[in-house]
Amino acid sequence: MTAATGRPDTGERPDPLRRPEAEQSASRDRRDAASPVRARGGWRALVLQPVLVALGLLAYVVWRSTTTLSDTEARQLGAATLWDSVLRHLQLTVVAAVIVLLIAIPLGIALTRPALRRFTPLVIGLANVGQAAPAIGLFVLLADWLGFGFGTTIVALVVYSALPVLRNTMVGLQGVDARLVEAGRGMGMSGAAVLFRVELPLAVPVMLSGVRTALVLLVGTATLATFIAGGGLGVLINTGITLSLNSLLVSGAVLVALLALAIDWLGRVVEHVARPKGL
């Protein structure tokens, strides 16, 4: 019913891709490097990125096995401890990401339905203001309210990274040509059928790029978990800084960067594979 709402029969249909708020919000995404356009031409980039990660990892392993470390450093950088930190970091990222998807995608879908569409500017406006908040401030404030630990960290991560998924879900759905929705309804598909068979498949590229953005944001932001006892690779960096142990600091930083790159790459691969044929 989309095209039918506004005014009668002018023969002109506004191009949904040019809605000012969609444009505006898309450009405000901090890490939306993302536009599906890039993912398309980029087989070479898709190959290059894991090679870079592998080389980085190799360099780190070589450095680690050739440097002599003090006792403290060796304890912190033992294979088992290191692996635990990486796993913990991943755990934070994945748990938060799953919650984000469960909240943001249905919300995004709901906000693009005709009945709720009028709340869209409000939500997007709020989300943009929220996005301007520094992550570290959010962590500290939530810790003051909910205490330290894993749970609080997850809450902070979810709050901080829900926006890209929410926004890209909405932008993706709004970007679907209103005429296709009308064609679907016109041939007797129910509203739900149009959503699942036409709108969502067509919005998938944009939505996935939002998910990838959120994942990368999560890996990065999870380094701040160390400040509120959430664990992860941030602990290494933080310990390195407080104890002036460069080996710890660099280990943490390098591993987090590699992890972020690896996850970004995985996201790109998924985007490439899941892009509906025919687009």
Partner: peptide, 9 residues
Amino acid sequence: IQAGGLFPH
């Protein structure tokens, strides 16, 4: 409708 309104995917 105009241009057929075919589903591109």
